[in-house]
């Protein structure tokens, strides 16, 4: 038996919004620790991982691990039927269930909606990502700042370079109409409202596709802050953490390389 109840549908709605433009379908792996998924986009440029830890749920029961193959567009359609303050309960049989049940209940518990989502058999490839990579540079910034930087720059062109030196990050773009750049310095005071922190072991300069960096802005509502981790020649890791260590959405983006 798998049973998981979220107090408010907002949590899962936001998480799905953050991933549904990158992947069409994925296996939601349920274990005693929580709900997680890993999936790549078709051209293998971006890997998305998501975890909702068991403590994110008001009720969480997973007697034995199961994998639910879900079409992201279908689950999003069903979750549109939940008001943001409605609770969401997901129930599935752990013995080869062919559908998962979604129950939405309003705050006063006098309106209860039931939906069944058909599950799919998805043959997915799991990639092994190093857990604690020793990154050369890590930058943390308000997620609203992330949105502004990459929605602005990706309008100019799709080749975005991130260069991080001591205390400064430079984001630049080259496009058909021209180019642009933006420098962001580490904020001085620790009690600054919207801090930018930059940790550099070694300066790093890498180029990434702007289309993806802009798509990741869909995760901004999840978290007040975002962390970008870079190592020369390796995929960029971007993390949006849910409050109270309830989980996260992470993206791994393959760099553009010199030919």
């Amino acid at each position: 038996m798998f049973e998981a109840k979220l107090t408010e549908s907002t949590t899962i709605k936001r998480v799905l919004d953050a991933i549904k433009d990158l992947i069409q379908q994925a296996n939601f792996d349920c274990s005693a620790d929580g709900l997680s998924l890993q999936a790549m986009d078709t051209p293998h440029v971006c890997l998305t991982t998501m975890t909702l830890r068991s403590q994110a749920f008001e009720v969480y029961r997973c007697d034995r691990p199961l994998s639910m193959g879900i079409n992201l567009s279908s689950i999003s359609k069903i979750l549109k039927c939940a008001a943001s303050k409605d609770s969401v309960k997901i129930v599935a049989d752990d013995e080869g269930a062919d559908c998962a049940e979604f129950i939405f209940e309003n705050e006063s518990a006098d309106r209860i909606a039931h939906f069944e989502l058909k599950l799919m058999d998805i043959d997915s490839e799991h990639l092994s990502i190093p857990e604690d990579s020793d990154y050369q540079a890590i930058i943390s910034m308000p997620s609203a700042e992330y949105r502004r930087i990459f929605s602005d720059l990706s309008i100019i062109g799709d080749t975005i370079t991130i260069e991080i030196n001591k205390n400064t990050a430079c984001f630049s773009v080259e496009g058909d109409i021209g180019n642009g750049s933006l420098n962001l310095a580490q904020t001085d005071s620790a009690d600054e409202k919207n801090p930018v922190t930059i940790n550099v072991k070694e300066p790093v300069k890498m180029t990434f596709p702007g289309k993806y960096l802009n798509t990741f802005t869909k995760a901004v509502p999840i978290s007040e802050f975002v962390t970008l981790c870079l190592t020369d020649g390796n995929p960029l890791a971007i993390e949006f953490s849910l409050p109270d260590e309830a989980g996260f959405v992470r993206y791994f983006l393959a760099p553009k390389i010199d030919q």
Partner: peptide
């Protein structure tokens, strides 16, 4: 000038 790499160049299958 730049070529888009893909993740399979960096991460192996589990």
């Amino acid at each position: 000038r730049d070529k888009q790499s893909n993740l399979k160049m960096f991460y192996g299958s589990e």
